[in-house]
Design a protein around this nucleic acid. Structure first.
Length: 806
RNA sequence: GCCGAAGUGGCGGAACUGGUAGACGCGCCGGACUCAAAAUCCGGUGCCUUCACGGGCGUGUGGGUUCGAGUCCCACCUUCGGCACCA
């Protein structure tokens, strides 16, 4: 008998699949039915794949095969998120063009993917750096511009001094650049934004449309959007005849507002300070703040300066001092606050430092004396010393005070969000050029759609300079204005790569169309995505951006749905040495050597078996040996069985095989529990191995081969052929035989006072009284009953009997 | 601090709906084969106790509900993840 040779088998079948284009699923129109879209987050082609990414695509592959064999027309595409800093930085470091680096990496990764045997429809491959792709990224940008969703505005932004570009809020992790880890700086700059804060409510409310997203992802998105309900109250500055709004979630404490704080960046600050003795000091403080990094600003003790002005508390008419302090952020609320030192920790710290008055207006309802700051806002807290509102529970007080101030035009209910607009422009080379032209006469003019794509020009030096490297491409920059024909310049910034990845799943539906970003019928056929699979790192970034993109596209009539990924599976990442496996940390394990040693099937099985699909797991190579052993056993057992006459589907093995079908179908199709599915097949194979001549062995082994196919398709295909069949990848998924699921006996567990005392093999159809009688007959049980009175008898059909004695 | 997830043998993990805790795999121990080793195969493997049959204990900690709790409830501890000067 020949031995299992994974290299030979895997190469053989990969050639067959490639030759037949076996996993291409053509478009058949929205009416064709049975469409199923399996989507995995597309890779960023830096270097090659590591086993952490293998986890992602192997899970997707199992589902692809499973649904194909269950009668679905499955689309399972692949592409590359190929613009971005990584390739550009590599080009700067090592020389060469980012395009060449990307091309080489894609070639390598594609080869790795084929070597893993993944059932990918390569006819749908896209790469976001190709002009045929980014033409439509640019086109979509123009539609967003038209719809008022893309806009240029000055705002406080985060700047990475190392990468020399601005970053979106989502790309700042713990105050550091997501890509390079450098501490980010604050800058006030005019940049391009997507106005996704206008969709904050939809992004929250339409979570209800998501059928199965992990709670931790929903929670992370809710945190990120950070919706707070409260009120906007107006504080009047009599001298200047202006009202300054503040946002507060604690309007119940307004009678305790003893001072007012405005952010240093607030546009009203110079006006407030003007003509005051403190003017120089104030403007100096504003300048000092601008020079501080976010980390400095947050880390230091609170400080601020008095402006010399007073504002009027809208609740009691008191004049309260107005301060400038950098603990108030311009980006949140209205950039100014009412300070209530008795009931806010930050205000309390500030008031203590500068000896400002502290007035208690909330107290425990039970009459106790709470230490300040007392921040409770619940039924256990009541409003005190607040005129007519005294004595009300805090929540009701808040409501009544807002209503009362509203009547006087001094306040209204308001909502504020933590979410900031999505900053999409980048001062870097390797991205899609933003397709607009700056004309001195006409302002910002969109590039006419029939002139797209705006091709990324070749330049000599892509090193970051604090402004886009494209600023040096004079010939490319200089154009005539499409509106007035006068001299004009192209926008030199490029787009954030998250723009590219916010719509790629639409392009897969119709990847080669040169008339439209994707034909509507093709989109309707496949979308929304039936099952999206990706890693935890995109809990907020990509998943929130793409949700926003689709909502806007739906509102402007480009797609017919609100949520792109109703069903999301977020797999846990693979750790190595206690840290997430990633190229930047250098702790990656490449699949290449593993495949060369054990074969792709062993690696695929192991990465599925290593733990629950959504859990974080530590990579341990020792387990691979075990998978390899299992495959060899499956090989040997199958070939032994194949030499014997088929025989009948009967006996214990037939029961076991049918139970395994039920288990694996449920584990894969409903639970994403690939680890227990594989364990179940192992049990079945172990059972056959005990006696390969047993009745039902043939049927059991065919079932095992068929069930393991989505996880280990090469060996399964080869064994299937040796069992005298063909084309397992197209063969119908096994269906359990109801009759064979029935058993004649079962193991009855007998408990005394809830403790297991005996196990009896009994006929399946015994009535309850008979089960109890058998239980009582057991000598082991009698020893524990010991003549005592049986007070209660519990019978769980087909499981157990519990005798309760005194 | 707020939000979310999770704590089970030497290790990864299983037990999905309150009903046999530890499936499956790794590791380890013993045996077969071998001149020997590797590979393979067979058997054993939660802890304590017993010559043995058996008995006791056991799912982060402490309580509770229940005939019965890894699973439900309350309080706490620990780890991981998200948010955080967000008013």
């Amino acid at each position: 008998m020949d031995t299992y040779d994974p290299q030979a088998i895997e190469t053989k079948w990969q050639k067959v699949w490639e030759g037949e284009n076996a996993f291409h699923t053509p478009n058949a129109g929205p009416e064709a039915g049975d469409a199923y879209y399996v989507l995995e987050m597309l890779p960023y082609p830096s270097g090659t794949l590591h086993v952490g990414q293998v986890r992602n695509y192997t899970q997707g592959d199992v589902l692809t095969h499973f649904h194909r064999r269950n009668g679905k027309r499955v689309m399972r595409p692949m592409g590359f998120d190929s613009f971005g800093l990584n390739a550009e930085n590599a080009a700067i470091r090592d020389g060469g063009h980012p395009r060449d680096i990307i091309r080489d990496n894609i070639t390598k990764i594609r080869a790795q993917m084929k070597r893993m045997g993944w059932a990918i429809d390569w006819e749908r491959e896209v790469a976001s750096h190709e002009p045929e792709y980014y033409r439509w990224t640019q086109w979509l940008f123009l539609q967003f511009l038209k719809a008022g969703q893309a806009a240029r505005k000055e705002a406080p932004v985060k700047w990475c001094p190392k990468d020399q570009t601005v970053l979106a809020n989502e790309q700042v992790i713990d105050g550091r650049c997501e890509r390079c880890g450098t501490e980010v700086e604050a800058k006030m700059l005019e940049q391009w934004f997507f106005r996704y804060t206008t969709y904050a409510d939809e992004l929250l409310d339409e979570m209800a449309l998501l059928e199965s997203w992990p709670e931790r992802v929903l929670a992370a998105q809710r945190n990120w959007i950070g919706r707070s309900e409260g009120a906007e109250l107006l504080f009047r500055v009599d001298d200047l005849d202006i009202d300054i709004p503040v946002f507060t979630t604690r309007a119940d404490t307004v009678f305790g507002a003893t001072f007012f704080v405005i952010a240093p960046e607030h546009p009203l600050v110079p006006r407030l300070a003007e003509g005051m003795p403190q003017q120089t000091e104030v403007l100096d403080y504003v300048r000092r703040t601008a020079a501080r990094s976010f980390a400095e600003r947050e880390g230091k003790e609170k400080d601020g300066v008095f402006t010399g002005r007073y504002g009027r508390n809208p609740a009691n008419g008191e004049l309260i001092p107005m301060w400038v302090a950098d603990y108030v952020l311009m980006e949140y609320g209205s950039g100014a606050i009412m300070a209530v030192p008795a009931h806010d920790e930050r205000d309390h710290e500030f008031a203590t430092k500068y000896d400002l008055p502290i007035r208690r207006v909330i107290a425990p309802a039970d009459g106790g004396e709470a230490e300040l700051p007392y921040v409770a806002k619940s039924e256990e807290a009541v409003v005190v010393d607040s005129g007519d509102f005294s004595g009300l529970p805090a929540p009701e007080g808040e409501q009544r005070i807002v209503a009362w101030l509203g009547e006087q035009g001094r306040g209204r209910p308001a909502v504020s969000y933590r979410l900031r607009d999505w900053l999409l422009s980048r001062q870097r080379y390797w991205g899609a050029p933003i397709p607009v032209i700056h004309c001195e006469e006409c302002g910002i003019v969109p590039v006419p759609e029939d002139e797209l794509p705006v091709l990324l020009p070749d330049i000599e030096d892509y090193a970051p300079k604090g402004k886009s490297p494209l600023e040096t491409a004079e010939d490319w920059l200089r154009v005539s204005c499409p509106q007035c024909g006068g001299a004009a310049r192209r926008e030199a910034d490029t787009m954030d790569t998250f723009v590219d990845s916010s719509w790629y799943f639409l392009r897969y539906c119709d990847p080669h169309d040169d008339q439209v970003f994707a034909d509507r019928a093709a989109i309707d056929e496949w979308c929304p995505v039936d099952q999206y699979i990706g890693g935890e790192e995109h809990k907020v970034m990509h998943l929130l951006y793409a949700r926003y993109f689709i909502k806007v596209m739906n509102d402007i009539g480009l797609v017919g749905f609100r949520e792109p990924f109703p069903r999301l599976f977020n797999h846990g990442w693979v750790d190595m040495g206690g840290a997430k496996m990633s190229k930047s940390k250098g702790n990656v394990v490449s699949p290449d050597e593993i495949v060369a040693t054990y074969g792709a099937d062993a690696l695929r099985l192991y990465i599925l078996f290593i733990g629950p699909a959504d859990a974080r797991v530590e990579w341990q190579e020792t387990g691979l040996e075990g998978m390899s052993r299992f495959l060899r056993r499956l090989w040997r057992v199958t070939l032994e069985v194949a030499e014997q006459p088929p025989g009948e589907a009967a006996g214990e093995l037939a029961h076991k095989a049918n139970e395994t079908i039920v288990k694996v179908t449920d584990d894969v199709g409903r639970r994403f529990a690939y680890n227990t599915a594989i364990a179940a097949v192992m049990e079945l194979v172990n059972e056959v191995a005990r006696d390969t001549a047993a009745p039902g062995a043939r049927m059991a082994v065919e079932t095992a081969v068929s069930l393991i196919q989505p996880a280990a398709p090469h060996i399964a295909e080869e064994l299937w052929e040796r069992l005298g069949h063909e084309r397992l990848w197209e063969h119908r998924w096994p269906q359990a035989d109801e009759a064979l699921l029935q058993r004649e006996t079962f193991e009855l567990v007998v408990q005394v006072n809830g403790k297991v005392r005996d196990r009896l093999e009994v006929p399946a159809d015994l009535p309850e009284e008979e089960l109890v009688a058998r239980a009582k007959e057991s000598p082991k049980v009698q020893a524990h009953v010991n003549g005592g009175e049986i007070r209660q008898t519990i019978v769980v059909p087909r499981k157990l009997v519990n005798l309760v004695i005194k």
